[in-house]
């Protein structure tokens, strides 16, 4: 079970809700992924087209927990404004702090992320910052009192997978709060790898929505997260530099 603040979740897969080809595909993908926590962005309503379908309004909110992000924010103040708007919906008290510091890489601004996290904690939010894989920054965020750390595996939407497992492992080992690997996951092997490293969860979006068959990929991601977690709990065999025969050397008759 994944525990974030006082909330307990059976699924360790957190799913983004952007860029699906259709609502029908998205609904099926969300269902088969068994993800409970779903991320959303906060944007201006297209009030001149109010009849547009809205995915959130079709969702069973008893089965899902909303994790609004502060995407679009470049400063802590902007992130706080977005987070407060999200909370005013009365539908959520968690927030994914996302303060981007660079348009080309979409890497998070560490200083603004830290400031935003501090401000949102003071406002009583359950705070989950999206951060780089910087080990010291993760510790600083934890010291502030954030409820989970969400280091990126690689840049958002890149699908490059886990490019620095060494840092991720150090963040996981030092952390007293859940670590959710967020961003950059490209395929099921990446999700399984994150879980094998000991991550408490994985947050992904484009890896599913951008797959040729998003529904099948959502299922694959669920299985990968489960497999990776079980592998972590089982404790993998020690790695060796040279071979060690599995068949006995005694009783050989040739």
């Amino acid at each position: 079970m994944l525990q974030i603040a006082d909330k307990i979740f059976a699924s360790r897969l957190l799913l983004g809700t952007g860029k699906y080809p259709t609502f029908e595909v998205q609904k099926e993908a969300v269902a088969i992924s068994e993800a409970e926590i779903l991320t959303f962005a906060v944007r201006r309503m297209d009030i001149f087209e109010p009849s547009q379908p809205n995915f959130l309004e079709q969702l069973d909110l008893k089965r899902h927990t909303l994790l609004p992000n502060t995407a679009g924010a470049k400063t802590a103040e902007e992130a706080v404004r977005i987070a407060k708007l999200a909370k005013a919906s009365g539908l959520c008290d968690m927030v994914k702090v996302e303060v981007i510091g660079c348009d080309r890489t979409l890497l998070p601004d560490p200083v603004e992320t830290l400031r935003a996290s501090e401000m949102l904690l003071e406002e009583g939010f359950i705070v989950l910052p999206y951060t780089s894989d910087d080990v010291v920054l993760a510790k600083r965020l934890e010291d502030l009192g954030v409820h989970a750390i969400m280091p990126g595996a690689s840049p958002i939407g890149s699908g490059k997978g886990i490019i620095n497992p060494f840092n991720l492992r150090m963040i996981i080992e030092q952390s007293g709060v859940p670590v959710i690997v967020d961003a950059g996951i490209g395929s099921p092997k990446d999700a399984a790898y994150a879980m094998e490293l000991g991550a408490d969860g994985v947050l992904l979006n484009t890896a599913v929505s951008g797959a040729r068959d998003p529904v099948k990929m959502a299922h694959a991601m669920k299985l990968a997260v489960d497999a990776g977690r079980m592998g972590f709990e089982a404790g993998r065999m020690p790695e060796k530099n040279y071979a060690a025969a599995s068949s006995p050397t005694e009783g050989l008759f040739i």
Binding site: T17, F40, A41, R44, M45, N69, I156, N205
Partner: peptide, 9 residues
């Protein structure tokens, strides 16, 4: 400003 939730990661 009238805002709402849209798909996002």
């Amino acid at each position: 400003e009238l805002v709402h939730f849209v798909g996002g990661g």
